[in-house]
């Protein structure tokens, strides 16, 4: 989608809803420095959502949407779950097929886009919950990494099946008491980040969405590396406040608590030397451009 697509005939301007006018006037498409700071001012970064009040997933959604390097040339792939309630309100092209097949759909999309637009950059980003990524869709998640498909997989890890009402999932912590696990989960949280690394991902990061600047850096890095090098994987903690018995206002604190030293969402990332060299190179170029620009001034 390009910004031209949303521009309206001036004759109709007076009858166009304010929301849409805001989108035309303030959309961040094409801005090279777009980022999490646009969340407060850009209507296209999901002004509304249908999730529960205070749901950290809605925050993560906004931060990610703001951090995508080229939204006008991005296709997002969703999966079944709470995220599929948000995607209809997102101003980036997106598709939802079934529960679990998101990485296979993304593979087809990415290959077809590369074939149809050989001289353009088209990003594909999968955004699915932990049930879709690690349980029912693990086969397709892993196979896309084995094949070195060049797209980013983002897992919203809320450590349970939120949309069906809080049942045990593979990324749930051991011992957590949930529906369908009344005596507590019996095995450890699946170590997907480590599996991702071993499966050939060029970049892997584990984080929460409590620090928008970190989300921005990680998302940009993941998308750019996927564009040039190979598959990337982000696992972001988006606690389901409803199912872990928290209040609307407590989501942020829950994320902060879970990322302190020794906790399961302590920030960690893995990057292959090749991807690191690519990022270093890119940063060096950026720096040089900046210096050149200031020298010209």
């Amino acid at each position: 989608m390009s910004k031209e697509k949303i521009v309206i005939n001036p004759e109709f301007w007076d009858i166009i809803p304010q929301d849409y006018r805001d989108l035309v006037d303030h959309a961040t498409y094409g801005k090279t420095d777009r980022g999490w700071k646009d969340v407060g001012s850009s209507t296209e970064l999901i002004a509304e959502h249908s999730l529960c009040a205070g749901c950290p997933e809605s925050i993560a959604f906004r931060h990610i949407m703001a951090s995508i390097p080229a939204p006008e040339d991005t296709v997002m792939v969703g999966s079944t779950g709470c995220t599929s309630l948000v995607f209809p309100m997102v101003a980036v092209q997106n598709i939802h097929s079934l529960f679990g097949n998101q990485n296979a759909i993304a593979t087809g999309l990415k290959r077809a886009l590369a074939y149809r637009f050989p001289n353009q950059t088209k990003d594909v980003i999968v955004l699915a919950g932990d049930g879709a990524t690690v349980d029912i869709g693990l086969d397709m998640t892993l196979q896309s990494w084995f094949r070195q498909e060049k797209f980013t997989t983002i897992c919203f890890d809320n450590e349970l099946y939120a949309n069906t009402g809080g049942q045990e999932s593979g990324l749930m912590q051991k011992g957590f008491v949930a529906k369908m696990a009344p005596q507590g989960k019996k095995f450890e949280k699946v170590r997907l980040p480590e599996i991702a690394r071993e499966s050939g991902c060029a970049y892997v990061a584990v984080l929460t969405t409590s620090k928008p600047s970190l989300v921005e850096r990680v998302v940009k890095q993941a998308v750019l590396i996927a564009r040039e090098i190979g598959p990337t994987y982000l696992q972001i903690y988006t606690p389901c406040i409803l199912e872990i018995g928290k209040q609307s206002m407590e989501g942020l604190q829950e994320m902060r608590d879970s990322e302190s030293a020794g906790e399961r969402f302590k920030f960690r990332e893995f990057i292959t030397p090749e991807a690191q060299a690519f990022i270093d190179d890119m940063n060096a170029k950026k720096k040089a451009d900046k210096l050149a620009a200031s020298a010209n001034n």
């Binding site: 349980d135 029912i136 529906k179 369908m180 696990a181 005596q183």
Partner: peptide
């Protein structure tokens, strides 16, 4: 979902003696 949730509760409380396997698909 409520059906198997109900069964997990009945097994957990000992009302029903059975193996309950929470699978991935």
């Amino acid at each position: 979902t409520h059906i198997v949730e109900g069964l997990s509760g009945l097994i957990s409380s000992g009302t029903l003696s059975a193996q309950y396997i929470s699978v991935e698909s």
